[in-house]
Amino acid sequence: MNGKIEIKNVSKTFIPVETDKRPVHALGLINLVIEPGEFVCIVGTSGCGKSTLLRLIAGLEKPNGGEIFCDGELVDKPSPQRGMVFQEHSLFDWLNVRKNIVFALKAAKKYKKHDTLIDTLLQKADLVEFANSYAYQLSGGMRQRAALIRSLAVSPDILLLDEPLGALDSFTRMSLQDYIIQLWRERKNTMLMITHDVDEAVYLANRIVVMKPHAGKITQIVDIPMPYPRNRGSSEFASLRTKLLKHLDFAKEDEQDYNL
């Protein structure tokens, strides 16, 4: 089974073109192994380097030190085997939903005429009536569903999700979380998702990687052993949530000198 990610001693520093600006140390020595078929969430406050890590795995950026391997192969450029969904502006505005998927298939050299794949995907995403609609005619949730099926059309082993639900309202977000779980359980591919919503991470992931700002380092890895589908109101859910918030320094209610 494919979809293994190995991150070995990876570091990344952004050196600005303007010489008067200081270089930004985004990541320092990251080591992480993700097994095929795992659902891993990376949580952390803004500026902790979680997005950079995802972009390195996608091959959109190159690390300054260390290496990333996907299924034993060194990552040095983007590949259709590693799909990616972004927070916004993922869809190509000038193409309708169907042609967006055709674009992905053609770019990955997997396009076949008279293929029922696109119709199946559209049906799954509940977008059949919107196949000929442009991005501006879709709601935020529909856009992200379209972006998800477009990435999955080329059947990647790994799907990288860069805060895909960050711009949506909370009800749409919850329904898309279920949709993502459903897609993952059908396809059993590796999922690596960035979020700054702790609830979302606990609801979705097998494992949660906690990163802290400035250092650009992994500070904690928390296993989520709950079976799917998960109950957002269960005591187990609540305690895991509290545990994560503690790791992120957001659970200070118990401390003596804490006041609002």
């Binding site: 972009r55 996608a58 091959g59 959109l60 990616m84 502006h89 869809l91 674009f103 990955a108």
Partner: peptide, 22 residues
């Protein structure tokens, strides 16, 4: 938007196609 170009890159699109298709 950066993500529009990067989305195209993740599908493995070539340089020429990046110009006339994106």
């Amino acid at each position: 938007p950066k993500s529009t170009i990067e989305a195209a890159r993740t599908f493995g699109i070539g340089k020429a196609a990046m110009i006339y298709k994106v």
